[in-house]
């Protein structure tokens, strides 16, 4: 088996404020794997992705990427920093954080410019990324004048122009309409098909089985609660309930006016004869 892209050994992480965000996490991710990270709000998904992107360093345990430990010292080495940033791209959960440039063009050009590529190459990459995400007509627009879905596309384009072999996506479907959502699923599948590693953090259970080979579930105690194939995880309703990923509630079906109690996650197949939307 090829060397894992990421290998975590008993990783802990706490913020400066003392807030614990990850506890005793051990896992490894192989090249070309498509991973989904599930977990309720505050369970540590975003923190994990930032650790994988070398933005934070573990406060305990060891995190290796491409066989090399990710530490502050490692990133002080400019050559390593350069190579790593080129290979790994993170799309932030908050597009307002990700889009900090004056225009869409500048945003998409930011990463290639940092790579010291010749001007013509930078322009070529930008054009290609904008074409792929169909945002050419937004080229001169300011990020604060974009809709939520447009911001997502620009955020993706800003990483696509880097051409990373590892994608880290933090809740990429938030705020997307159903059509853009299915477009995004196709995008992730295409990246996976091209042999890239894709790690997606999400709450959206409906897309999990399409975009994941393997699912990691984080509990509210910031520990890895379970890992397995999508089918294994999604059928384990006890686990999902314990990790606050589904909820027990009453709901009404139009065709069955009498309310009935049941357990489900929205849009996923369950035995009431709903149409499946995922």
């Amino acid at each position: 088996m090829a060397e894992p892209v990421f290998a975590l050994q008993n990783v802990d992480f706490a913020y400066d404020s003392g807030q614990m965000a990850l506890q005793d996490v051990s896992l490894s991710i192989c090249p070309g794997e498509r991973i989904v990270v599930l977990g309720s709000n505050g369970s540590g998904k975003s923190t994990l992705l930032k650790l994988l992107d070398g933005l934070y360093y573990p406060t305990g345990g060891e995190l290796k990427a491409f066989g090399r430990a990710l530490t502050e010292a490692a990133f002080a080495d400019d050559a390593f920093n350069f190579a790593f940033r080129r290979r790994v791209g993170l799309v932030f959960q908050d597009t307002d954080v990700q889009l900090f440039n004056a225009s869409v063009f500048d945003e998409v050009a930011f990463a290639p410019l940092q790579l010291d590529l010749p001007r013509a190459d930078v322009t070529a990459r930008v054009e290609a990324a904008m074409r792929d995400l169909r945002i050419e007509r937004l080229r001169d627009r300011a990020p604060h004048r974009l809709s939520g879905g447009e911001k997502r596309r620009v955020a993706l384009a800003s990483v696509l122009s880097l051409g990373p072999e590892v994608w880290l996506l933090d809740e990429p479907t938030t705020g997307l309409d159903p059509r853009s959502q299915s477009w995004l699923v196709d995008f992730i599948c295409a990246q996976g098909a091209a042999g890239r590693t894709v790690v997606t953090a999400t709450h959206d259970l409906t897309i999990v089985d399409t975009i994941a080979d393997r699912v990691l579930v984080f509990g509210e105690d910031h520990r890895l609660a379970a890992a397995g194939t999508p089918a294994e995880i999604l059928s384990n309703s006890e686990l999902l309930l314990a990790c606050n990923l589904t909820h027990e509630h009453w709901h009404r079906h139009p065709e069955k006016p009498d309310g009935h109690r049941h357990l489900h996650y929205h849009g996923a197949p369950h035995d009431h004869g709903h149409e499946r939307t995922g």
Binding site: F100, F110, R119, L162
Partner: peptide, 14 residues
């Protein structure tokens, strides 16, 4: 976010 996209303290514009 800047660091993630390769920013190392040397800003560039095109």
């Amino acid at each position: 976010a800047m660091q993630s996209r390769g920013y190392r303290g040397r800003p560039r514009t095109l």
